[in-house]
Amino acid sequence: MAQTIAMEAAVDRAALFEFLLGMGDNTLVLGHRLSEWCGHAPALEEDIALANTALDLIGQTQLWLGLAGEVEGNGRNADELAFLRDAREFRNLLLAERPNGDYGRTLMRQFLFDAWHYLALKGLRASSDPRIAAIAEKTSKEVAYHLERSRDLVIRLGDGTAESHARMKKALDELWSYTGEMFVNEAHDAALAAAGLAPEPESLKPEWNTLVAETLCAATLGKPQDGYMHRGGKRGLHTEHLGYVLAEMQFLQRAYPGASW
């Protein structure tokens, strides 16, 4: 009996660890992508805005991966999880690792992600685990600003010049097939939802659809038809792009283990 309970707890802990890695890896990888714009954005204000968004996301990573390490119970901290795992151990959405492309593509990726991120955090504020609820409460305030900004820019550029409209349309068409993964339930998701820890991914879809359709309509872009959807990131099956991100991000800790300054 005691053994069964211990086993169950262990299974839950593994599922919870996977879930927390997903949250932290999304913010880590996307935060890194945004930081690639630092010093390159089309206007100073945009440069600052992207760097600040990246900063928020990296800060949120510390909270999620910090908790993941605590739940795992093997003494790994947020830094070790960020710098010393290989691509197959990352649980981020494929959308987060898509290359920046032009500024329009970066903003479209941000909007599609922010809309999901905001709704996911809104659900997580009611988590039965007070540690998760606290992080969601804190970070959803920041993400509300991210969404407000990316939504506004998608509308302005979509409904802008012929050039900006064409670029936003292209970005949307390129990224759309990476949005389905946000709402796919993986094996551990049902157990987490049953325990009240996190909402099921597919439950977020109706609200996301409404929000995204409204914005894309205002942007004169229109919502694409759902077709083939890429997936795999949440199981560690990534595109080749993640390897390059990790090579840059992890180089220092790999070459000089434990380096600090």
Partner: peptide, 13 residues
Amino acid sequence: TTAESTLMERIAG
């Protein structure tokens, strides 16, 4: 005037 308090209203059009 948080983004959060106005966001959902704005999204609702």
